[in-house]
Amino acid sequence: MSPLGPLLLATLLFCVGIYGVIARRNAVLVLMSVELMLNAVNINLVAFSNLLFPEDAAVSGQIFALFIIGVAAAEVGVGLAIVFNMFRNRASVNVDDVDLMRW
């Protein structure tokens, strides 16, 4: 199996995530797009670890992916809490409306 397929899939997911982060105006959808980008990185890590360096029996790729999953879970929790706070204070989750700290 060639690593071309997983790497291209990860690239597509990452670019789709970038599109979502730029084009969406709902904060929850922006968080979803960030999740897509994190998962693209996970695919890359596993593909490199298992397809390009299989003889080393290297577990580092999968362990990095596990840590990224854990950090992403924490990020979703805090991010959604911030979104809820924003919705309560401004009655909107539109990221274009939240420009209080704009210079």
Binding site: F14, C15, V16, I18, Y19, G20, I22, A23, R24, R25, N26, L29, D96
Partner: peptide, 16 residues
């Protein structure tokens, strides 16, 4: 759901 940056977003993500 989408803001006015759709063209920019398509350009950036497609180019990347």
């Amino acid at each position: 759901l989408d803001n006015q940056n759709r063209g920019l977003a398509i350009g950036v993500s497609g180019g990347l």
